[in-house]
């Protein structure tokens, strides 16, 4: 049985990532552990203001009791969240959604495509895969952002760029004079990678306009539709498949998503 009561939680760290995004570290009160999967989300609750769905940016771990949320300030709740600091209390519901099917990807090449804020949920998957690195073959990461200043998790990306365990490519739509890497939309990065289509699992998260173009590139490389996973955005309001806002044709994205394979998404006319 479900009610709307959020779990009390405490902010234990706040880091400014860009002008608009901050990374909050959160601990559930009363020794509770979130126990989430990569690409699941929670509903943050600030009483008096409301609730908002936020993807979890940290990987699932058994030991640590905290998790991380990367929050862009753009509505009432997220603006209010940006005013909070360490030791402030918030409410959490969740985790919700199916999450990334991590049990299906062992022994495979993992291609991760992150556009803009899409890196926030994918970071949980990237970190999870790197923790369990031995279980996978190649890990390829493509990151796109509008401008250099918009890039999230810059220090971590620098580490990944140096880490032989992960092949990282990054591009911006509009460069500034200090930018030395690729310029152009994220699909341009596909020229620079070779993949083994039969062994590759792709995970894509980005703004709605991005999916069609990125999927086209990946299909062109010969990857099977069922091995391309998308993490879609809709208006997740209740998280429990009732309120109707996140419905895409017959499915409630908050329950049957947010991660869908392209094979599934293709059959839903409203998905892409």
């Amino acid at each position: 049985m479900f009610n709307f009561l959020p779990m009390p939680a405490t902010i234990t760290d706040v880091r400014q990532l860009t002008d608009r995004e901050r990374l909050f570290t959160i601990r559930l009160d009363n020794e509770r552990i979130l126990r989430h999967r990569p690409c699941q989300f929670v509903l943050i609750s600030l009483f008096g203001i409301g609730e908002a769905p936020i993807s979890i940016s940290s990987p699932p771990v058994d030991s640590g009791k905290t998790f991380e949320l990367c929050i862009r300030s753009m509505g009432n709740l997220t603006n209010a969240m940006h005013k909070l600091s360490v030791n402030d209390k918030i409410g959490i519901r969740g985790p919700y959604g199916n999450g990334f099917p991590i049990e299906k990807i062992g022994g495979k090449d993992i291609l991760i495509v992150a556009g803009g804020l899409g890196l926030a949920p994918l970071r949980s998957l990237i970190k999870y895969v790197l923790q369990e690195r031995g279980r996978y073959r190649r890990v390829i990461l493509l990151i796109g952002a509008k401008r250099p200043g918009d890039i999230l998790f810059r220090e971590e990306i620098s580490e990944w760029e140096r880490d032989p365990a992960i092949e990282t490519h990054i591009t911006v739509d509009a460069a500034d004079p200090s930018w030395t890497r690729h310029v152009g939309v994220i699909t341009g990065l596909f020229r620079h990678i070779d993949i083994d289509p039969l062994k590759t699992i792709a995970a894509i998260v980005g703004p709605p306009v991005m999916y069609r173009f990125v999927i086209r590139e990946i299909l062109a490389k010969g990857v099977f539709e069922g091995n391309i996973y998308l993490d879609l955005e809709r208006r997740m309001r209740c998280g429990v498949g009732k309120c109707g806002h996140c419905q895409i044709n017959g499915i409630y994205l908050c329950q049957n998503g947010p991660v869908l394979s392209y094979l599934e998404a293709r059959k839903l006319q409203e998905a892409l």
């Binding site: 008096g48 203001i49 009432n76 603006n79 209010a80």
Partner: peptide, 11 residues
Amino acid sequence: VQGLLLSMKPA
């Protein structure tokens, strides 16, 4: 007014 007190953009 309550919204303003909570720094909300009233909708």
